[in-house]
């Protein structure tokens, strides 16, 4: 099953909407509660990343009885050094973003911790593609 959500950069009022929708879908599909929790935490973090750093983005969700695949594609500045961004505590979030409770510098490592597989590619000046996979069996 496929679902697509658009994400607007800089608009924190709606940040988390797509992740909430994904959560509702997974609940209806009777996915294991622990898996829902990990998926939604990771998805929420990734969604907020787009809002915080990119101009716009799209979330593609693909669910089969075997896997949940969520792909975050954004148009934005990209990540110059992915290895650095993967380090615990690294954050480029502005102080304004931090005040809203987002961006504690645990973005990518935290996402990786919660998912079964994570794949990230980025092109500076163009954008980032983040793919998350959860195995259901």
């Amino acid at each position: 099953m496929h679902f697509t959500y658009n994400v607007e950069g800089g608009n924190f009022t709606r940040a988390g909407y797509a992740s909430s929708e994904i959560k509702k879908i997974l609940k209806q599909l009777n996915v294991d509660l622990a898996i829902i929790k990990r998926t939604v935490v990771a998805s929420y973090e990734a969604e907020v990343n787009i809002v915080a750093h990119a101009y716009s983005g799209t979330i593609f969700v693909d669910i089969t009885p075997e896997t949940i695949l969520i792909k975050f594609v954004d148009e934005g500045p990209g990540i110059p050094d992915i290895a650095m961004a993967m380090k615990e505590g690294f954050s480029t979030a502005t102080s304004k973003v931090r005040e809203m409770g987002f961006g504690a510098g645990m973005g990518l490592p935290n996402i990786r911790k919660n998912v079964d597989n994570m794949n990230i590619t980025s092109e500076v000046g163009k954008g980032t593609v983040l793919e998350l996979t959860m195995y259901l069996q």
Partner: peptide, 18 residues
């Protein structure tokens, strides 16, 4: 937990229903 949102116990069936 007593989840009531699920469309079916079986996930394949739940997907079909969704």
């Amino acid at each position: 937990p007593r989840a009531m949102d699920k469309l079916d116990e079986d996930m394949k069936m739940a997907m079909l229903k969704m």
